[in-house]
């Protein structure tokens, strides 16, 4: 067969390393939840750890790191729209508590 046939085969070691990293992050997020850092910092920390786990899964388990540019775009676009949706909606809720609007609450 052509050399290209196995061009996308990723060594098992990469999967095992990703798995070890995911397990370490799982332990870390549970450990961090026992440390009193305040609501904002703890929430942000838990989210950041989850985000790192998700990126590991997308890049290595889902092979995006070894994918073409088109695959890169398609794997990012959903999360990109999610950021827009969260940013606009949450900016509304954040400002509602700062700028009191008559009739709200």
């Amino acid at each position: 067969m052509h050399g290209s046939q196995h061009s996308h085969v990723i060594p098992i070691a990469v999967y095992l390393r990703s798995f070890v990293a995911l397990m370490a992050l799982l332990v870390l997020t549970i450990a961090a939840s026992h440390v009193p850092l305040g609501t904002g910092v703890s929430s942000a920390l838990a989210f950041t750890i989850a985000l790192i786990k998700a990126v590991i899964v997308v890049l290595y388990f889902m092979h995006v790191r070894y994918g073409t540019r088109l695959v890169w775009v398609w794997s990012a676009v959903g999360f990109f729209w999610l950021i827009i949706m969260f940013a606009i909606t949450l900016s509304d809720y954040v400002f509602r508590s700062i700028v009191r609007v008559q009739g709200w609450q």
Partner: peptide
Amino acid sequence: EMTGLYWHFVDIVWIFLFPLLYLIPR
């Protein structure tokens, strides 16, 4: 491979659900 992509996505959803629901800070 397609099945794998779907399965890893389901995993990612849980990766976010777990801290959001089970690890709420005070």
